[in-house]
Amino acid sequence: MSKPKQASIHIRCDEKLANEFKQVVEQNGYTKSLIIREMMQEYIDNSKKLNLASQQDTMAKVIKTEDIDKLEPLKDITADDLLKLAIRMAEKHI
């Protein structure tokens, strides 16, 4: 099995911040790369959760205000299709 393709990310930051980050990471027994990868994944996960919450808020407002124009794209979707769509959306954000 082949390993996934690797990519490098280079950032600029204040030297003091970089040195302090390196020191703290090493004191805790980790690598800078590991911590940054975990922070990146956490940011992505949080972003997806916020996006889902935003979509849910929008849907709730549309349904609550009964704004028919905004509901128009959903009018021809069956209950089964709506359920499948909801499951796919939930799977993406779990």
Rank of each mutant, 00 (worst) to 15 (best):
E38T: 04
R88Y: 10
R88A: 14
L82H: 00
L52M: 11
R37G: 02
S54Y: 12
S8L: 10
I44A: 10
K70S: 06
S33I: 01
V24A: 09
M59I: 10
D14H: 04
S8W: 08
C13F: 04
A18R: 14
I36M: 10
I9G: 00
L82F: 06
T65H: 12
S47G: 11
Q27F: 07
K92V: 07
L50D: 14
Q56I: 15
I63F: 07
H10V: 12
D80M: 06
I35C: 02
S2F: 07
D57V: 08
E72T: 08
Y43M: 13
K49I: 11
K16P: 02
E66A: 12
Q41K: 15
Q41N: 14
K84G: 05
K5E: 13
I36L: 14
I9E: 00
T31E: 04
V25E: 01
L52N: 06
R37T: 05
E42F: 12
I94T: 09
A90P: 02
K32A: 07
H93R: 13
E66M: 09
K32V: 11
L50A: 13
K92H: 07
G29A: 05
A60T: 12
A53N: 15
V25L: 00
K22C: 03
E15R: 10
R37P: 00
I11C: 03
